[in-house]
Design a protein around this nucleic acid. Structure first.
Length: 503
RNA sequence: GGCCCCAUCGUCUAGCGGUUAGGACAUCGGAUUUUCGAUCCGACAACGCGGGUUCGACUCCCGCUGGGGUCACCA
């Protein structure tokens, strides 16, 4: 038994924001390291120059930190086994490739993409699996130089021995791949850069990675990695392939879903961590929810903080079955997390949301923001808060009366609603002081006097204040505005509702 | 299609030979209510099918069916 410390890593490629599935992978690796006193490493896999996106690395790191997932070594922090960006490790891959070439574990190949394509088509036509035909004699370095001079692409392929490869997976158990199943895959591209398979193996060995938790879609890659590890003479880390996270309908969660929603004129479904942030979710709710996708602490608890997860995590309790991403349940978790958060926590998180969304609530001071958040209690996301009180913090003339609201509360019964607005004006004007409970009481007694239900007055007032029928309790709503503003908005509403609709 | 993985309420899951199969979300009732939301009660709801093994299978084995992943000079 060695006493080496556990080292786990998360290795995204910088192609965009952090996907929610990637976030779970990162979380599990993080939790494993935290639970067992190991190190958690962030590595950027940017070997596909064409797919790299400017800023993606920074966004990835920001999303991770927003979730509360902190790494011990990474491109920005450095560490003893860096650099942690693959584009800066080309020399290491070149050296490793040379070793493989020299030992006969790898060989040069010169096929043009079109030629490979023809071979694959032919195989498909004959209904057999395509496997790259290994040459009986491996080309020499001189051959490679000559090919390059002739303008042919030169890649390096791994000569995979024809033997059974058994992958020991901590979740799935032993998975056996029959001899001949793994083809001679490319490890160095014609541009000299390593492929993913090669870079991963070289880096995991170099960075002393002991545990690899990754999505199950990588399972078929693992025998390649094991073959490479054997050829390189390095040890194989413990692998655990995580069950996939799917859409509610069982399809793969992809960015296409977002576009489909946009095309259909719906609010886009959140796919990336950043989407949830913009939609007004709390990171602790997201982390709690995704932790439970394929894993559970085993004692019936469902509400878990990062610390709880780190304390309870174990690979043994990861299940094999893929999970579906149930947005309703996440919403419920978020609602609870909002209710449980301290005023200070809520303020901080809300400001982040408000800034990203350019909400009219972005500029509120602590006291006013606390008040708003309290008055809106029960909200499910910050978007709810914005929708409920945002209009109160915009100029009067931006209040647009929604047709439905006009029809249902203002115009009904021959303008019954508008009539109440007219009558309540003097009551409000006469109030000795402008506090939510005084306002509330005054409106209640106004209703009693006139034999009205609370809704008969409160609803028209809501429409006058916000243009819609949704707002906090009516006393709170009015008290959030100055008395002058309330009177102005009532008068403006009466005017608008009385004039014939244009268009 | 080849290879590989998987299978408990609609969804996330607990269960690890003997349980009234538990919890959560959703749903449906009811309560509360000044809108939305929240909240409080209650109800409905699952072991895919067929063979074995066993005194006894949700649990172990095999087959079927179904779902998923993967077959790039992408990761």
């Amino acid at each position: 038994m060695s006493l080496q410390t556990l080292r786990a890593r998360f290795a995204p490629s910088p192609t965009g924001y952090l996907h929610i599935g990637g976030a779970r992978t990162a979380l599990f690796n993080w939790a494993l390291a935290r639970r067992l006193g190991g190190r958690f490493i962030l590595r950027i896999e940017d070997t596909d120059v064409a797919r790299n996106i400017e800023d993606a690395e920074a966004k990835l790191m920001e999303d991770l930190r927003w979730l509360g997932i902190e790494w011990d070594e990474g491109p920005d922090l450095g560490g003893p086994h860096g650099p942690y960006r693959q584009s800066q490790r080309l020399e290491a891959y070149r050296a490793a490739a040379d070793r493989l070439l020299d030992s006969g574990h790898a060989y040069f190949a010169f096929d043009a993409p079109e030629e490979l394509d023809v071979m694959r088509r032919a195989a498909a036509a004959e209904k057999r699996a395509f496997k790259y035909p290994r040459p009986s004699r491996f080309p020499s370095r001189q051959d490679a130089d000559r090919a390059r001079a002739e303008g042919r692409p030169v890649v390096v392929r791994c000569a995979v021995p024809s033997e059974e490869i058994v992958v020991h997976d901590e979740i799935l158990g032993n998975v056996a791949f029959p001899p001949g199943e793994v083809e001679d895959f490319v490890i160095v591209k014609s541009n000299g850069w390593p492929t993913y398979h090669f870079a991963v193996v070289v880096d995991d060995a170099h960075m002393r990675i002991t545990h690899v938790l990754r999505a199950q879609e990588h399972l078929m890659n693992t025998p390649k990695h094991v073959a490479l590890q054997r050829a390189l003479g390095v040890s194989t880390p413990a692998y655990a392939h995580l069950p996939l996270v799917m859409n509610l309908d069982g399809s793969k969660m992809s960015k296409r879903d977002k576009q489909k929603d946009i095309d259909a004129g719906r609010l886009p479904r959140e796919i990336d961590v950043h989407d949830f942030r913009v939609s007004g979710y709390l990171p602790e709710a997201i982390v709690n929810f995704i932790a439970l996708l394929g894993w559970s602490p085993g004692d019936g608890r469902e509400k878990l903080s990062m610390a709880d997860i780190a304390a309870a995590f174990s690979v043994d309790r990861i299940i094999k079955t893929s999970a579906r991403f149930d947005r309703d349940k996440l919403l419920a978790f978020n609602t609870d997390a909002c209710a449980a958060a301290s005023a200070e926590r809520l303020r901080t998180a809300f400001r982040d949301y408000a800034r990203l969304n350019r909400s009219p609530l972005a500029g509120l001071d602590d006291a006013m923001l606390d008040r708003v958040l309290t008055v809106c209690r029960g909200f499910r996301t910050f978007r709810d808060v914005d929708a409920k009180v945002g209009m109160l913090f915009r100029p009067d003339d931006e209040v647009v009366l929604e047709p439905d609201a006009v029809k249902k509360v203002l115009a009904r019964n021959g303008g019954h609603g508008v009539e109440q607005l007219r009558r309540i004006l003097s009551t409000l004007r006469a109030l000795p002081d402008w506090t939510h409970d005084r306002i509330e009481t005054a409106i209640k007694s106004f209703c009693d006097e006139h034999g009205l239900k609370m809704a008969d007055v409160a609803q028209p007032l809501r429409v006058a204040m916000t243009g819609r029928t949704i707002s906090p309790a009516i006393g709170e709503t009015l008290a959030l505005l100055s008395r002058d503003a309330v009177l102005r908005r009532i008068e403006r509403c009466i005017r608008l509702a009385s004039s014939p609709p244009s268009g």
